[in-house]
Design a protein around this nucleic acid. Structure first.
Lengths: 105, 105
DNA sequence: GGTTTATATGCGTTAATACTCATGTGCGTA
DNA sequence: TACGCACATGAGTATTAACGCATATAAACC
């Protein structure tokens, strides 16, 4: 395994994504989504957050390209652009759940 | 691919890790480490951050179990506890670098 | 055209946190 | 014991960002 240093741009870009995922409600919203797009009201219902708050976070996710928005009449449907992100997050979660039990000092 | 919802505890625990990695200097410090432990002064030198700042971030990383500290005389050596975390971060970065070119609005 | 529904946004407040400066602690060495 | 080096930490400050409220926009329906 090679440990090669990250370039400043990579650090900046990658940390921006981690910061976005680091907000619990945002992660909740994102992980509640699949590839099938759902209207905001459904996200509000399933997360229990206020509409304002969901809209606020969806904007952040959208502007980062982490979710995709599709207008349909007066509805706006949100979903993951591609499954990859969710797969990686799942990997992270798997690592997290197994490493916490092996935690050292 | 199955999209199963995350439990509140998983969201909390996972977002905490993402938040930690979401700080650019912290990510910089973490990705500058390998499995071979290095003293704080070396981290300070390679990152260009102040000693106080590095210590501040190392504490956060250490308390989260993301880095391991080994005392040796008046030195404290820091390194990754296991290579897994770095591998996952690398996956993330790979996804990030390839998805930005394919970015949809 | 007016009303309801779905979502977005501007503003003000509050809480979290990254940072610096100064100082503390602990180990090694003269 | 006294001094120097490596690192940690407490206090204070400033920036950021999440949240709620009120309101705006925009589409659907009467």
């Amino acid at each position: 395994m090679s440990i090669n240093a990250y370039k400043p741009k990579e650090i900046k870009s990658l940390s921006r994504i981690f910061k976005i995922l680091g907000e619990p409600n945002r992660l909740k919203i994102l992980t509640s989504l699949g590839l099938e797009c759902r209207p905001v009201s459904a996200i509000v219902a399933s997360t229990g957050l206020t509409q304002t708050n969901v809209s606020f976070h969806l904007r952040v996710l959208r502007e980062a390209g982490l979710v995709k928005a599709e207008k349909n009449g007066s509805f706006v449907f949100y979903c993951l652009p591609e499954p990859e992100l969710r797969v990686i997050i799942d990997h992270f979660q798997y690592w997290n759940s197994s490493s916490t039990s092996t935690k050292k000092n």
